[in-house]
Amino acid sequence: MRAWLPTALRGLLLLALLAFLVSPESFEPLLKPLVQQDAPAIYNHGSLLSLTLQHLRTVFIATAAATIIAIGLAILVTRPIGAEFLPLSRSLVNIGQTFPPVAVLALAVPAVGFGEKPTLIALFLYGLLPIFENTLTALTNLPRSVMEAARGAGMTGFQRLFQVELPLSLPVIVAGIRLSVVINLSTATIGSTVAAKTLGEVIIAGLQSNNLAFILQGGLIVGALAILIYDSLSGVEKLLTRRVGRR
């Protein structure tokens, strides 16, 4: 495969997605064969564009919060003062990973009621784990000779953290964020079962009215978003990996 082909395909995907969001009606002929006579082929209970933006907003807020907390916790348990909590946090992570996101959502609703809140909480909680785990792995597997040299050169704990440990861990941390974002992009659709404004609305509406076109367009938008975000974060990760000299 030629090197430019994947990039070109991504560009096309992005264009198609934008075109669909800005002017869904022009795609009507494509989706029409999927629905019965008289049924609408394009989602008509609200703007797809604004739903998409709200979907992204929810995912972004939840992942950003998860990133800050997860990295902070991972830093804490890898310092001498937090070392006691390292084994505990490791097992918590392992247990957490086996928990399905839907279950987290189901548990959040009774606590905070319906709407965007339980979705944010579920996404936040589920997004924590991959980032925490990756940051922990990165911080505890730094090359020994490099850490030894940093100490031997007379760096303080803070200087080692910010000048050596975090920069070297960044690619792995970004990989964790990427995983979180992608999981959360799809998990957010389930948020609409508890009345959050996300693209899940489109899919649910399709399920309720037996409208295949709705289900498809909701799913495809989420899928396209996931692919595009996943790919661009992969790109960032590659760039960072090259920057830290490990290719």
Partner: peptide, 20 residues
């Protein structure tokens, strides 16, 4: 300790250069 180490050179096997 960190001030002491800045005044003492330290070179190790496998050099420990900062890759970034």
């Amino acid at each position: 300790a960190h001030e002491l180490r800045r005044r003492i050179g330290y070179a190790i096997q496998g050099h420990g250069l900062f890759p970034h």
